[in-house]
Design a protein around this nucleic acid. Structure first.
Lengths: 202, 202
DNA sequence: GTCTATACCTGGATAGAC
DNA sequence: GTCTATCCAGGTATAGAC
């Protein structure tokens, strides 16, 4: 990994943990253990680093989705794999929220041009999920279902971050998995539009 | 409205639109049309303003919930009133996200002490919603249902902010209303844990 | 490519006149 | 209570030596 890549990786992590604006060049430089002067040899402005970080995230997301596509044996299983990242990443989500959602939120507030690029990460997840629902027989409302699931996982991340409640994450993940199962199982019929999270110990 | 109150009101709005960190004393002072020096007569530090803003938001939220409590004629109607704020505030949500969720997120990233105070706003909504579900016959899982609904509305706000898609908000609101209706109608029985957003024009 | 030194600006915060 | 003037820290960015 060359210096440029190390800078991007460090910025990626710090932007997630501390936010874009709150992270200074000095923070990144000290994480990479280079001088600030050297820093500017690789990136002219802070926006350039942001752009590189978003590009990296897009690439990593794309790669992950392709892996899931290859590994999962059915649409239902793949969708459940997506939902499970809430549990796999629960510690960092409780500490810092969802990397995608919080970055988009921050860039929207800053009225930053890169917001357009950042939301493409959401777009990748949306399209991949829609593809799974379509493959599961829900061609007509695949994107609606994808956005619905994406929204739910975002909401879980936001509240998990606010309350730090791991049991809440697990309960919602369980419910989302059951919901997803029912969607692609129910492929032919129009499913009921109502649901309930399972009552505790119910 | 005295100067202090005007400062808090301006800070409240700017923190929402631009974020806490991105908003400078100069921004607030110029919005209130006072000098920066005068500013410090009212608030010693930036954290003091943040605290005042959160206190204001807590009070306004409490007041709003009490109003809804008095005005709504049934638990189901009150819950639907809560859901409808996503539509009433759709423009600002698409532009800046949810005021509560985005503030909590930002404070978590800054590792700011006020995070504890800020999440109490979520707590007010959670408890009020739980109260409605309990009144609707769902005493046992009232808080679970409340958190579920709160999470869903947060997720809708996050994606609405990212994509600026008003139709998406309306579709999710419709689905949440139907879900809520079914919950308090179904009071006695354990409801099915699965749901689907309605297929478009389905 | 990497460093040190430094210029420049913004933003938080203070002092003191009115 | 309000103002102007000012200080200081930190953050972005540049110049130039090695």
């Amino acid at each position: 990994m060359n210096t440029r890549e190390r800078i991007i990786a460090a910025a990626d992590q710090l932007f997630y943990e501390q936010g874009f604006e709150h992270t200074s060049f000095a923070d990144v430089a000290s994480a990479v253990e280079i001088s600030r002067g050297n820093f500017y040899h690789h990136f002219k402005t802070k926006d350039d680093i942001l752009e590189a970080v978003i590009t990296l995230r897009l690439a990593k997301t794309q790669e992950m989705l392709e892996l899931w596509e290859a590994e999962g044996s059915s649409p239902a299983e793949r969708i459940q794999g997506f939902i499970q990242i809430l549990i796999a990443n629960r510690k960092s989500i409780m500490a810092h929220g969802c990397p995608v959602g919080t970055l988009c939120n921050e860039l929207a507030k800053l009225d930053h041009d890169a917001h357009t690029e950042a939301r493409k990460i959401f777009g990748l997840f949306r399209d991949w999920l829609a593809q799974q629902f379509a493959a599961g027989g829900r061609k007509r409302d695949a994107t609606t279902l994808a956005l619905h699931l994406l929204a739910r996982s975002q909401g879980v991340a936001t509240l998990a971050n606010a309350f730090g409640d791991e049991a809440f994450i697990r309960a919602e993940v369980r419910d989302m998995c059951q919901w997803a199962e029912a969607q692609v199982a129910n492929s032919g019929r129009a499913a009921s539009p109502t649901s309930s999270p399972k009552a505790k110990k119910g």
